Computed example of a mutant assay.
Amino acid sequence: MIKIAFCDDDMEVLHQMNELLDRYRVERNEDITYAAFQSPFELLTEIEKGIRPDILFLDVVMPGQNGMDVAKEIRQYDTNMKIIFLTSSPEFAVESYSVGAYFYQLKPIWEESFFRLMDAVLAECEKKKKNSLILRSKDGITRIDLQQLEYCEVLGRKLLFHLGNGAVLESAGSLDDLAGQLMQYSNFFRPHRSFLVNMEYIQNISSRSIKMVNDAEIPIPHGKCSEIKNTYMEYAFNGEQAVL
């Protein structure tokens, strides 16, 4: 099921979005649920509670807090949500990309263009879901893109997920279970009982440690260096990377 939210202070726009999504859901036979918000405060309150829509239609100009500021706050909780800005003016188009906007939709919204947009964004959501992981953390439920997962480590009874953008997410769980889930992805391997590594982020392998691109060092157990190097070299060759 795809979850959609839309936030606009104009009741006519909210009514139009309801009608468009109802028609789209019926004509495309899509499993979609959606919620409408008339103020940024209502939307952010739900986001802070852990609500995570896959797609958000967000008005740019609203009283109290504009859509750009709202999007910046949302990105603190969710970097994968597809944010589509709604506006009557193109003046914020460039700024919209600074918050990772998926699209910038000018009003009025016509059915034909809306259907094309929905087809494209739903296809992108489905692709992302196949290569993503859902975490339950103290900040709520977060979906992370596996391409952004640099490595995961066990610390006490917690799992720490280190992302390529520098963020670190904390979740309960077992590294054994996580490794089992990611076995289907050739870029993940477990060089140490306390670490799971994305080989796309390896910078260097020495006799004692794996150095990641962010300079983090993953310890190599005694006697495992050759095995780990062979695993990495096999992955590099299969990925057709240049190896000297």
Score class of each variant (00 low, 15 high):
Ala236Met: 15
Arg75Trp: 03
Tyr104Asp: 00
Glu126Arg: 14
Ser113Leu: 05
Leu133Arg: 10
Leu58Val: 05
Ala35His: 13
Ile141Cys: 03
Glu12Arg: 12
Phe161Cys: 02
Asn18Arg: 09
Lys107Thr: 03
Thr231Lys: 14
Thr33Glu: 15
Phe115His: 11
Ala216Val: 10
Arg208Phe: 09
Glu227Lys: 15
Glu150Asp: 11
Ser113Gln: 12
Ser113Ala: 09
Gly67Ser: 07
Gln241Val: 00
Leu133Gln: 05
Arg193Asn: 13
Ile228Gln: 07
Pro90Ile: 03
Leu159Asn: 10
Gly67Leu: 08
Ile32His: 09
Ser113Val: 03
Gly166Arg: 03
Ser209Ala: 15
Val213Ala: 12
Gln147Val: 02
Phe37Met: 10
Pro53Tyr: 06
Asn230Val: 05
Thr33Phe: 09
Tyr97Ala: 01
Arg52Ser: 14
Leu56Asn: 08
Val197His: 07
Phe189His: 03
Glu124Met: 04
Asp10Phe: 02
Met11Val: 07
Leu175Asp: 10
Ser206Val: 02
Ala216Glu: 13
Phe161Asp: 01
Glu126Met: 09
Ser226Arg: 14
Leu133Tyr: 13
Ile4Tyr: 04
Glu126Asp: 13
Glu91Lys: 13
Val61Glu: 15
Val94Pro: 00
Gln203Tyr: 11
Lys3Ala: 10
Pro191Asp: 03
Leu146Pro: 08
Gly50Tyr: 10
Ile83Gln: 07
Gln76Ile: 00
Phe114Lys: 08
Tyr185Asn: 08
Glu240Trp: 02
Ala167Leu: 10
Lys127Ile: 07
Glu150Pro: 00
Tyr34Lys: 08
Arg143Asp: 00
Ser171Gly: 06
Val168Lys: 11
Ser39Gly: 04
Arg190Gly: 04
Leu56Glu: 09
Thr45Phe: 07
Lys107Glu: 05
Phe37Pro: 08
Ser88Asp: 09
Leu14Gln: 12
Gln16Lys: 12
Asp22Thr: 11
Ile144Ala: 03
Val26Gln: 10
Phe188Lys: 09
